[in-house]
Design a protein around this nucleic acid. Structure first.
Lengths: 192, 192
DNA sequence: GATAGCACTTGATATAAATCAAGTGCTATT
DNA sequence: AATAGCACTTGATTTATATCAAGTGCTATC
């Protein structure tokens, strides 16, 4: 499945054969079964992770036991708590697999080295970071200005594939609404 | 006020005297009076902006005329619609001054050139982007999991200075609650 | 020093969404 | 085929927050 990573790299930047080899050599493939943790609250995140197969989520659990999903990641997305990686502080997030999945792990040390030694990699990572920020900003805007129904419709538009793969209750959590509300919202939309 | 920018640069990276000169030379100082726009919805953003004095905000106005504030920026913060700058598409955001302010503008072209030619600048910008992403992620988490009161308390903790400078109604907008609700929340907190 | 105009508060009421509590219908397992 | 366990739906009720509508008290300006 390292092939998926290689293909992604080639699509995202212009790497020489040597550079490509260097980057992929830094990655270690790991399988993560459905419901299995990639990392847990309290762990220090030591690796960047790129999803080559499946679907994972980043979330927290509050005092009431309610899960709050910050992010999903499917094939060709990155996942992992950048804050914990950078600072070395324990992460406040849990990451687990929603489907049987596979990720390419790159240790912080190798990742930083790649950024330093392979300009194409560094540029690619910064472009991703920029994109991630824009997506986050956009999501903030939905929280500020949209109703439950509008947020759901907006998700369908932006990430149609997610809706197909992820249980409704998790979509609801990601949108910041309850599963019951999402169910009613969907019913209303269907009745038109 | 270009001194403010220079001081900031020196604090954020190790620039040679020459590099420092190069960066500051790329900036043009602009005064923005209170209530004056730095840019409006529909404009293509052509400059990155660094606040040397005062306070500005990024916001949208919905069909009902309600303002939704995405960001504030005070001294030593950057502001501007990165999406519009990158893509050349019209911005969906308004940016205006909350106080009489002063910003250092750097055109997209010069900015990109600086990133390319001055490694310290490039690294600094990427570090800021990373920080911005973490702040955004954190804010998303507050929308997912906190009540109106908790969101306000969290803001007080993270950005105490903002609360002093920005009208309550704008704080409310930033938190995604109404001005009336914030007023009541504050009363409740005070009564303890 | 009267008047206007904000920024904020307070009260009454409405509403979107949450909560609580059963249902239904799948899928999987034995 | 029976049973269990999810994932989702549906209904009744509650609740947090929004909305609407007056207030109050500052500050500023003529």
């Amino acid at each position: 499945m390292i092939e998926v990573f290689k293909t992604y790299l080639q699509a995202k930047g212009s790497y020489t054969a040597e550079e490509l080899e260097k980057v992929t050599a830094a990655a270690v493939i790991k399988k993560v079964r459905k419901r299995q943790y990639l990392s847990q609250e309290g762990d220090v995140t030591r690796n960047h992770a790129f999803v080559t197969k499946g679907c994972l989520r980043t979330y927290t659990v509050d005092e009431k036991g309610i899960e709050h999903i910050l992010n999903f990641a499917i094939e060709n997305w990155w996942i992992g708590d950048r804050e914990s990686i950078q600072t070395g502080q324990p992460s406040i997030y849990n990451i687990d697999a929603i489907e049987d999945s596979e990720v390419a792990l790159i240790s912080k040390e190798k990742f930083d080295q790649l950024c330093f030694e392979v300009p194409a990699f560094n540029n690619m990572i910064n472009a991703i970071l920029q994109k991630s920020f824009l997506v986050a900003q956009n999501r903030i805007h939905t929280f500020l200005s949209l109703t439950a129904e509008e947020k759901y419709l907006s998700l369908l538009e932006k990430f149609p594939h997610l809706n197909m793969r992820v249980p409704q209750s998790m979509i609801a959590s990601y949108l910041g609404i309850t599963a019951e509300t999402l169910s009613r919202v969907r019913k209303q939309i269907a009745q038109r």
